[in-house]
Simulated assay, not measured.
Amino acid sequence: MNTRSLTLDPTPEPLGNVRDSAHGTARIAGMALLVALAGFGFLVPLLWQGDIARQDYNAILSPFSGAHPLGTDHLGRDMLARLAAAVRLSLGLALVSVASAAVPGVLLGLLAAWRGGLTDKCLGLLTEMFLALPGLLLVLLVVAIYPGSFLALYGAVALVLWIEYFRMTRALARTVLASQAVTASRLLGFGPLYIFQRHLWPQLAPVITTLAAFGAASAIMAIAALGFVSVGVRPPTAELGLMITELLPYFAEAPQALALPIAVIFLIVLSLLLIAGRQKP
């Protein structure tokens, strides 16, 4: 009776390591894509002397050419310069909105978890008041009151985003502060700063990083949505959602012009979602 011998790997690679490797590769790809987009936004003005507001009625909806590498829009404005400006605007507003939401959200979450009692209840009630109003509606109300204001735009987005930072920070900090390690540190006389650096921050950092990536993606989509319904920034500002609105009636004549801002939004959001992925605590 013939037998076959099979050579098996005595130490197969754990499935968790394979997943971690895949998530690590996805994060690297997301970072590379985001760096490429940011480089496009900030290097184009240095390498290409295009004016985002200059109109050329002799080159309306022109295709890709040497004079206009990405063509022109319905007013003959250079799409390369306008897309670069729109990327800078979207990334800048998203960064400011996330920072403006993360700092108060994390600090208030830590305060609620640390103090507890009445402080926790009051801050929890505050978040419930914000949650009672849909986020996009709140942004629309603020932007409608202050139309065309960049300050109102990113401030309104930050008002929506800070709630998630607060809730996640409070929930995680409660668990960490109730642990035996924190109790031991307190008995040994260590202060709040040591407890934050040694116990809280290592647990909070991966969660905050993930929330920041998702929050930036949400901010960019919200800004584009506001531009699409014409309640965000005003023309002739180059903004991705506003560009889509302006070019939508000319889809049949120049589909490539409409596809460009849509593709940019897709790539920015994709890069941020890849970066968020699954963070290891």
Results as ranks from 00 to 15, higher is better:
A156S: 15
V157R: 05
V157I: 15
L159W: 00
L159Y: 05
L159N: 09
L159H: 04
W162A: 07
Y165I: 08
F166N: 07
F166W: 00
R167T: 04
T169H: 05
T169I: 11
T169N: 02
T169S: 03
R170G: 01
A171L: 13
L172F: 00
L172G: 03
L172C: 00
R174W: 00
R174Q: 13
V176H: 02
L177R: 10
L177E: 01
A178Q: 15
S179P: 12
Q180L: 14
Q180S: 12
A181I: 14
V182F: 03
V182L: 12
A184C: 12
S185M: 13
L187F: 06
L187N: 07
L187V: 13
G189C: 11
G189A: 07
F190Y: 13
G191W: 06
P192C: 04
P192A: 10
P192M: 00
P192F: 03
P192N: 05
L193T: 05
Y194M: 00
I195T: 15
I195Y: 01
I195D: 12
I195N: 09
I195G: 02
F196M: 12
Q197F: 08
Q197C: 04
R198I: 06
H199M: 13
H199N: 04
W201T: 08
W201V: 08
W201D: 09
W201H: 06
P202T: 12
Q203F: 01
V207K: 06
I208L: 14
T210I: 03
T210N: 01
L211T: 06
A212P: 07
A212C: 14
A213G: 07
F214S: 01
G215A: 08
A216Q: 07
A217C: 03
A217K: 01
S218D: 09
S218W: 05
I220E: 01
I220F: 09
M221P: 03
M221F: 01
M221I: 12
M221G: 04
A222V: 14
A222I: 14
I223G: 00
I223W: 01
A224D: 04
A224C: 10
A224K: 10
A225M: 11
L226Y: 05
G227R: 11
F228D: 06
V229F: 10
V229H: 02
V229R: 11
S230Q: 15
S230D: 14
V231I: 14
V231Q: 13
V231D: 05
G232M: 12
V233Q: 11
V233N: 04
R234P: 01
R234M: 12
P235F: 02
P235V: 12
P235G: 02
P236G: 12
P236V: 10
T237C: 04
T237D: 15
A238I: 13
L240R: 05
G241Q: 06
G241S: 11
G241W: 08
M243S: 00
I244W: 04
E246F: 01
E246D: 15
E246A: 08
L247D: 04
L248V: 14
P249A: 10
Y250N: 02
F251C: 02
A252N: 14
A252I: 14
E253H: 00
A254K: 01
A254P: 02
P255I: 15
P255D: 09
Q256G: 00
Q256F: 06
L258S: 04
L258H: 02
A259T: 13
L260A: 09
I262V: 15
